[in-house]
Design a protein around this nucleic acid. Structure first.
Length: 594
RNA sequence: GGGGGUGUAGCUCAGUUGGUUAGAGCGAUCGCCUGUCACGCGAUAGGUCGAGGGUUCGAGUCCCUUCACUCCCGCCA
């Protein structure tokens, strides 16, 4: 028997009444009636009410005890009277009559209350994370995280995947995000990099003949934070399979996600078979490659209509002539919405840095007409064409944006969210997964006008390998895919290019010479030259999956010890200064910009 | 690097058009209370109003600068 407890704080029931027990835990709450004191004792598992009265010599000491002190209580379980049963807690039918107690861990005055549903400033929560983590909601989130990871591990094992660890100290990669660097003492002037993902290693695992690999892998990227992106580090369910095509990866991941989300959330899955949307279609219909499919609004391109003579919307017509496009969002049956609804959206769009959203509502008295500030510019016939192209009906409204492609995508994408939220038409009690497929292999850098890899340089281009037209690189599609849920990008993956000759050619298009590639990716290229199996994989973000399951908007709510937005750990004081000696050993000297 | 929001007691917040000694709830300390479960009642302590500068007879409130936290853009193969 444990010295500290016979039961945990969620265990005792009325069947235990009469038993003499030990409980240990934190003083969650005191209710002091002067001659009678209630103490709610809390541990990881639950809460048990303990009682003591003035007759007991310990009464005065317990009366003065600070909340969050850790104590061991010895006492007798008794059944509560009917009228004092507490149905809020599992142990609500009993209570402990305290005979004796022992303080195991004293507590100073608290910088933040543990027993409270209030929200607190992040700064104080992160500084005293160990207190914050005692609080019910986040405590449960972290337990959920553990259970989800353990479930996924188990499922992956069942699916025949082997779990391997890959190095944390590795080499810097020229593509992708900024690296975290670690100086090498034994190799003066040289640096390791922390892995942005175990990308190359997992491919090497395939070349090594292990067939199916997975890992709950820490990944490090020195990028600025967002609500759904921790600065510094995050975890991926990294997986890779040999002798597979895109479809095989999809099957595994769909199976895994459906079972995980069904097990850990009450929300319904809108699709058990995840829809596949090409990158091109996604950018047109949603303005983004991470569309929230819970949102029914769709973007339509109506640029062509603006070449009609009977449209006198001169600003748009002029912009179209100089290369802009016009896209629109149709909202169903919004004819009775007040003027302020439309104007607010226009105003919001301007605040986003766009030139605003023009709008009109389609009406029919004797014939079709458009009501609204720009309605007068559209003839009946022009409206007919727009209605045919967009499926808009009488009573619907149309929001229009005109701009160059990239700006247009940006504003239509956020306008979809904004309008749907204002109309309250997003089903928040559901998960909508989709695959985004057919990513282009290359894209043009807007600043330098050079061709660069648009995603992962190790992806396999689509089509007959011998017939790929490298003269038109922007037309090459890759076996590259993303999985998206509720507008959150969970992961990208690809079928990899396992053919060195082809890889040299593709890198050449992006401006890397053969020597460059051999230098930067020697391990990879060398390995692929000794009999590499066709292979592919994906790496879903664990933190984001848990965020969705826990119904949290911020990744820090599912991360035990997160850093703040400036990538500082306020509890451990990281990053911190180091001694001159340490720097000297590493052959480093500091040159800090003022 | 840029834009928005926030910053007042240990914690969560209020503070009107610039006007007397800056308030409340929780927490803390002290006292009263034997059935609460957000127990109740009374009292006390607790403030560089993020910091610095300016305008004014007078600034928590207006202006400028700056710092911290947060959200977003950039960035994230």
């Amino acid at each position: 028997m444990s010295k500290y407890r016979t039961h945990n704080c969620d265990e005792l029931r009325k069947e235990n009444s009469g038993e003499n027990v030990f409980l240990s835990g934190w003083v969650n709450k005191k209710r002091d009636h002067g001659n009678l004191l209630f103490i709610d004792l809390r541990d990881n598992y639950g809460v048990t009410q303990c009682v003591i009265d003035k007759e007991n010599s310990n009464f005065e000491k317990l009366e003065k005890i600070q909340l969050e002190t850790v104590i061991k209580v010895e006492g007798k379980v008794i059944e509560r009277a009917n009228e004092s049963i507490n149905n809020e807690i599992n142990t609500g039918e009993i209570e402990i009559i305290i005979k004796n107690f022992l303080t195991l861990g004293k507590c100073k005055e608290l910088p933040l209350p543990v027993f409270s549903d209030q929200e607190y400033a992040e700064e104080i929560r992160l500084k005293y994370r160990f207190l914050d983590l005692r609080r019910k909601k986040i405590h449960e989130n972290i337990i959920l995280r553990s259970k989800v990871i353990s479930f996924i591990r188990n499922e992956m094992n069942k699916l025949g995947f082997l779990e391997f660890q890959t190095p944390i100290l590795t080499s810097s990669s020229p593509e992708g995000a900024r690296d975290f660097l670690v100086p090498s003492r034994l190799n003066p002037g040289k640096f390791y990099a922390l892995p942005q993902a175990p990308q190359q290693f997992k491919q090497l695992v395939m070349v090594s003949g292990f067939d199916k690999y997975f890992q709950i892998a820490p990944c490090f990227r020195d990028e600025d934070a967002r609500a759904d992106r921790s600065p510094g580090e995050f975890y991926q369910l990294d997986l890779e399979m040999s002798f597979v095509e895109q479809e095989d990866v999809f099957n595994i991941v769909e199976k895994l996600f459906v079972s995980t989300f069904k097990k850990f959330s009450k929300k319904k899955l809108l699709f058990n078979k995840f829809p596949r949307i090409s990158y091109k279609e996604a950018m047109l219909k949603y303005g983004t490659d991470k569309p929230d499919l819970r949102n029914p609004l769709i973007v339509n391109d109506i640029t062509e209509v603006f070449s009609r003579e009977d449209i006198s919307f001169e600003i748009f017509k002029k912009l179209v002539k100089s290369g802009s496009e016009v896209r629109c969002i149709v909202t169903k049956n919004t004819k009775d919405k007040p003027r302020s609804f439309f104007d607010n959206i226009d105003k919001w769009a301007k605040e986003q840095g766009s030139s605003g959203l023009a709008y009109f509502t389609i009406e029919k008295n004797t014939e079709i007409s458009a009501k609204g500030p720009v309605g007068k510019f559209f003839s009946k016939e022009a409206l007919d064409e727009i209605m045919t192209k967009t499926g808009a009906k009488v009573g619907d409204s149309i929001f229009l944006a005109c701009a160059k492609r990239q700006d247009l995508e940006k504003i239509t994408s956020s306008a979809r969210d904004k309008i749907a939220n204002d109309l309250n038409i997003v089903d928040v009690n559901s998960f909508a997964f989709c695959w985004i497929v057919d990513y282009p292999m290359f894209e043009k850098d807007e600043q330098t006008n050079k061709i660069k890899f648009s995603h992962n340089p190790f992806s396999m281009p689509q089509g007959d390998i011998d017939k790929i037209n490298l003269e038109k690189p922007l037309e090459i599609l890759a076996y590259q895919y993303d999985i998206v849920c509720n507008g959150i990008e969970l992961s990208s993956g690809a079928i990899r290019n396992h053919i060195p000759d082809l890889m040299y050619k593709l890198f050449n298009v992006a401006g890397y010479s053969k020597t460059d590639v051999e230098q930067k990716f020697s391990g990879m290229i060398n390995a692929l030259s000794y009999g590499a199996p066709p292979h592919g994989g994906i790496a879903p973000g664990i933190d984001r999956i848990i965020m969705l399951l826990a119904n949290e908007k911020n990744i820090r709510e599912v991360t035990m010890f997160p850093m703040n937005q400036n990538a500082q750990d306020l509890m451990m004081n990281a990053p911190s200064n180091v001694s001159e000696n340490q720097l000297k050993e590493l052959n480093l000297s500091l040159k800090i910009k003022k």
